[in-house]
Simulated scan of single mutants.
Amino acid sequence: MKIFDLESKLETNLKQLDFYYELDSKIESKFNILIVLYSFIFVYIIELFKYFIDAKLEGFNIVFSCSFLSLLICLFFAIKYTYLFHRPEDVLYIHEPEYFYTTILENYRINLNISDDPTTDEEALLNEYVNHTYLREQEIALAFNIKAYREKRKKYYFNFLWLLGAAFFYVLTAGFVIFENRNENTKFELKNYKEILNYQKSTSMAEKPKIDPRKVITSQPIAVKQSGKTTIRPMIKPEAVKTKTENTKNK
């Protein structure tokens, strides 16, 4: 098969068209990675906004503010390229074969003044013209799709870079907020530690109310035999305790 033969050109172009159709679908599936990064960023970004507003009100923090603004810039460009990546673009497909051996063939017959019953030479000539039209359409579609794929791949590349930068500054700002919150909690605990100790000491050292042991009710435990029979012993009231004590003394 010679590379410059018409049939070999047609076959090569068809393979290349199928190849770039497949690449276009594959790059669409790669966007799932970016969805994971977007989900990772938007989980905690509301808290970062709240902290940014509080930091602006309470006092300017240059480290957090610069990191957070860098996050917003990266996120803005990432969303921009996400839109450009998913914006509907044209993809060229060649006509079905019937279009060439009916419409195109009929146009050539009219243009070349060939009758409906062509000779062998005229039929070969028509076939050659139709094949060249088919080849030209393939080349137009292939050139356009290659350019469209390269542009789409470039958009995906920039989208990934900006989103990766946003993820970096997101981790930086989120870590800063978590670290600051822990410091505030630690300061609060240390500040109130003495008060808590004093409160515990005052509670433990407080005088307990004195009770009269003679007035304490004695509660009897429940007796359970091995057969499963349960016997509840009567509760001994203070008066009964007092009576028993007196009887013992009299004896």
Rank of each mutant, 00 (worst) to 15 (best):
A240F: 08
F85R: 11
Y99A: 02
A78D: 09
F188M: 09
L142A: 05
F179I: 02
F31W: 14
V91I: 12
L92N: 04
D54E: 14
I33K: 15
L126Y: 01
L172P: 00
N159E: 04
Q226D: 07
I217F: 08
R153H: 04
N192Y: 15
L135D: 09
K208G: 00
N183R: 13
N127S: 06
L69C: 03
T231K: 13
E137R: 09
I217K: 15
R150M: 09
V224G: 03
T231A: 06
Q226T: 02
D121T: 04
L17V: 04
E128G: 04
L75H: 02
G59L: 02
S65Q: 05
E184A: 13
A124H: 07
I146P: 06
L142P: 10
A166P: 07
N145L: 09
N192C: 07
T12C: 07
D116Q: 11
A167L: 10
E128V: 00
K229T: 03
Y21P: 00
V43Y: 07
T245Y: 14
I94F: 02
F76Q: 01
I196H: 08
F52H: 13
G59N: 14
N145P: 10
K225F: 10
A124P: 02
S25V: 08
D212H: 06
S219N: 13
K215C: 06
Y149K: 12
F85Y: 12
K251Y: 10
K80W: 03
V130T: 01
N127Q: 12
T133Q: 15
E96D: 13
D212K: 05
D18I: 02
L75K: 04
E151K: 12
Y38G: 02
I94A: 08
Y149F: 15
T82F: 08
K26P: 01
E137I: 01
T245D: 15
T218F: 13
Y156E: 08
I79M: 14
E180M: 10
P238F: 04
F4T: 10
L23D: 03
N181W: 03
N247R: 12
A78W: 04
E128M: 05
F188H: 09
F160L: 09
I110A: 14
F160S: 13
L190P: 05
F160H: 11
L75P: 06
A143V: 01
G165L: 06
K194L: 13
H86F: 14
E47P: 07
Y99F: 15
F188A: 11
L164G: 04
F158L: 11
L105E: 14
V130H: 02
S115Q: 11
K208S: 04
W162P: 06
L34W: 03
A124I: 01
V36I: 02
Y134M: 12
L161P: 05
I140Y: 07
S202F: 00
P234V: 01
L34I: 05
P118H: 10
L6E: 10
R153A: 05
I178Y: 10
K187G: 00
A78E: 06
V224Y: 04
N32Y: 01
L126P: 08
T133G: 06
L126H: 02
I53M: 10
K249N: 08
C66F: 05
C66K: 13
L142Y: 08
E7K: 14
V43W: 03
Y21M: 07
F64E: 04
